[in-house]
Design a protein around this nucleic acid. Structure first.
Lengths: 134, 134
DNA sequence: GTCGTTGCAAAGCGTTTGCAGCCTA
DNA sequence: TAGGCTGCAAACGCTTTGCAACGAC
């Protein structure tokens, strides 16, 4: 079977207007979003939505694995749909956007000192994206 | 000549007991330290030292280039001596400490999509350090 | 009706800043 | 002595939490 994307969070509790709006925003995004961006976007569909609700939904879905945090040092956390293939990120210093990078070399794990156990790694590339570089 | 470490910050203004203590702590550290760790350590030598003074010294020295920030997503910034050889970091999820990793493979820059210009990269390893793994 | 969920406001946490007094040069 | 430096406390921005009202089931 093809490892298809979870269309919905698994254990999302009750279905509410707020969570539906937030989920929709995340599902439609083509790049990782900050909680503030999610709030602003979701409020278009659900006025009165509070930032606390966004954080609570995010937290629950990260635990679910339905979304995943994208943490760029020095910047607020962003979130994208989880369940994707292992990948990394490219941060354009010109336009500030974050892009996905498909390639990876798991041999980087061997960089750790002897006796250290590596169970995950993150590679961040910095520079200028195609459109900013041209 | 061997590229020796700057023994002192360049433009550190007046010499005070506080800044001497903070500088000493950074110079003697074998791993990146958080402002809080720096404060606690420096207070042994300089009681009454305030956290604001630590932040002010850090900021000035980062601008100097005498120290460099080490930013682990989801954690407070840490600081280490600047001017070191290119290296990366390992974050122990058990004890929370951050260690230096000497090795690197600059081929990771080639992971970016075509037409993207990569001018820097960061590799973060996560797992358990030697003493936590045993 | 139950109890998970929400918005609000307050609390945390790491970091910065305003200010009056201190101390280096 | 002048003006940079310091400690304190308040202010910040982002995130979490306490609480009473709300609403899905």
């Amino acid at each position: 079977m093809a490892p298809s994307r979870n269309p919905q969070p698994e254990s999302s509790g009750r279905s509410t207007r707020q969570k539906r709006s937030i989920r929709q925003v995340l599902a439609n995004a083509d790049r990782p979003l900050t909680p503030q961006e999610i709030l602003t976007e979701a409020q278009l569909d659900c006025p009165g939505l509070g930032i606390a609700t966004v954080y609570r939904a995010i937290r629950a879905w990260v635990e679910d694995g339905w979304i995943a945090p994208v943490e760029i040092p020095g910047q607020p956390d962003r979130f994208e749909l989880g369940g994707k293939r292992h990948h990394h990120h490219f941060h354009c210093r010109s336009c500030g956007l974050v892009f996905e990078v498909e390639r990876c070399d798991s041999r980087v794990a061997a960089f750790a000192p002897p006796d250290f156990v590596v169970d995950d790694h993150e590679i961040l590339l910095y520079g200028r994206c195609a459109s900013c570089a041209s």
